[in-house]
Amino acid sequence: MASRKKTLLKVIILGDSSVGKTSLMNQYVNRKFSNQYKATIGADFLTKELTVDDRTVTMQIWDTAGQERFQSLGVAFYRGADCCVLVFDVTAPNTFKSLDSWRDEFLIQASPREPENFPFVLLGNKVDLEPRAISAKRAQQWCQSKNNIPYFETSAKEGLNVEQAFLAIAKNALAQQNSTVDLYNEFPDQIKLTNTQKTSNNGDSCAC
């Protein structure tokens, strides 16, 4: 039964500029890598269908611009996300240092119900390049300190580990969605228009 139901997973890719967010998304969805050096404006998304544990899910991958100026876009894009993918460039130490601020920024802007349990996945991209500045161990240590975030080393250029990483992302997103579904159902009851109208009427008559 469950397999018939279509699920939409919203995944956000975050990270400093030129770590390979667009390339990772393109490699995963289109299996293409472009050598073109092109910055992203605002945000863009692609969708891909995949099967996770016999369930067909549609993954909506949001690629964001890394430029500082676009960070204020946050709220509009982050809300309703099921999983957040943090990307850094293993050859650029600065991009690793920014991870904390990206994670915090996301948690503040998206304000998920359980911030400490919200699924993140960390990708160390460009492993095909030399010299490496951030070792796998250091990245893993960071992950452990953040409630055991899954970590993958990828290369968008060579398609290395990209498929596996996104499968893990989908699984984490799915787990998150399953756990929050019940909570969302509680909301509709709480809007009572009739009551508010009454009180406002009373208020008007009082003022007269």
């Binding site: 500029s17 910055a39 920014s98």
Partner: peptide, 10 residues
Amino acid sequence: LGLYRTSGNL
């Protein structure tokens, strides 16, 4: 590479 695009240490 990526002058003005890559970000520096904040």
